[in-house]
Amino acid sequence: MMEQSPTGRRKIPQRVQISRVQLASSLDSRLYDDHLSERDIATGCARARHWGLASVIVRPANLRLAAAELSGSTVGCTTVVGWNADDSEPMLPMETLEEAHRLVAAGATELGLVATAGRIRRNGGAPFTETLTGLVDAMRPLGIRVRLVTDPESLTSSELRDACHLAAETYVWMAQGGSWRGRRADLAEIQLMRASLPMDVLLKWTDPVRRLETLLLCIALGIDRFNGDVEDLMQAATRAEWLGPLTIPQAGVDF
């Protein structure tokens, strides 16, 4: 309900402003397509540095290249443990930790672990919980963040909610709806995830954002990290800032 002033007039809530720099820090750059050359990856890293993006996401084989290109910047270098594994594989704790340490040595600053139906359902999810907990605990002293990547294509709504609860219990820093495999989360699923996560666990929606207005609306819905066409979004934000402050719309007022 909208607040009223002592005079009885409606008080319009003050909208939150966000800068272009803050917007940039909500974007990941996807540099993992099969057809990308080393030059393409280097160019993508240079673009990420230029705009001050949150992170680039690369295949394990390209970690050293990306890390070298991003050296000295604030842009993170993200990959996934078990990138080349079959999604039905259980991701055993010791093997996962061994691979994680190799990835960190190659330059990763953030690691993901994919939660699939096969992993969540195996023995009531106990082995996957053990693996995720061990990964978070081992990476935290190294300053390496862990994100839980959910697979909406294989998980039921109930399992997606359980995965979010697991993310909170194991202190991962971000949960992600969708990956490079299968379909991405839809809006209903990403809202379910937000409602199932504490606010101190960030939420990423992997469905690419194509318009600045959509990006601002998603931020208003509590989504923290995005994919999208970096150049188009950042140029649109730059043009918009020339006209006035960028503002996040308010639920119940603007939509």
Rank of each mutant, 00 (worst) to 15 (best):
I190K: 02
A138I: 07
D151F: 00
R47G: 00
R183P: 00
D137L: 10
D254C: 01
I219K: 15
F226M: 08
T74C: 01
R194K: 01
Q176F: 07
R184V: 15
A67L: 08
I144P: 07
E153F: 05
D200H: 15
L187T: 05
A100I: 01
S88H: 13
A188S: 11
R239S: 07
L132Q: 04
L53S: 06
V104T: 02
L103K: 01
R49N: 13
G107N: 06
A117S: 11
Q235K: 12
R140D: 11
R15L: 09
F255K: 05
A100K: 08
L212A: 11
V149Y: 01
A220M: 03
I12Q: 06
M174Q: 14
A240G: 02
I223E: 04
R122F: 12
V209I: 15
L53Y: 02
L70F: 13
T206R: 07
T74K: 06
P90E: 04
S179M: 08
A240T: 00
C218H: 14
N227T: 15
G222M: 02
W205K: 01
S26I: 05
V81H: 00
S19V: 03
L132F: 05
D34F: 01
W173S: 15
R9M: 09
C218V: 05
W242S: 14
D33M: 11
L36A: 04
G134I: 04
T206A: 07
S88N: 12
T7L: 11
F255H: 04
I57W: 13
C164P: 03
T43W: 10
L31Y: 08
Q191T: 13
M2K: 09
A175N: 03
D186A: 00
T109D: 12
V75E: 09
I248A: 09
E38H: 15
T131N: 09
L92A: 08
M2H: 06
V146Q: 08
D87L: 14
A67I: 03
G143L: 03
W242G: 15
I219A: 06
D186V: 01
A240P: 03
T7M: 06
A100E: 05
L103R: 04
S73M: 04
I223F: 14
L187Q: 09
G228Y: 03
D86W: 11
D207S: 10
V172Y: 12
G177Q: 08
P93F: 08
E153V: 05
S29F: 11
Q4K: 13
A185M: 00
N84D: 15
S158D: 14
W51M: 09
W173D: 15
W205G: 01
D40L: 10
V21F: 09
R183L: 10
L202K: 14
M174N: 10
Q191V: 13
R225W: 03
Q235C: 10
N84L: 13
L132A: 05
L160C: 06
N123G: 00
L31N: 05
I190Y: 03
Q176I: 15
R49S: 13
R194S: 09
F226D: 02
L215R: 10
P6H: 11
L135I: 01
R119S: 02
A61Q: 12
A240K: 07
T129P: 00
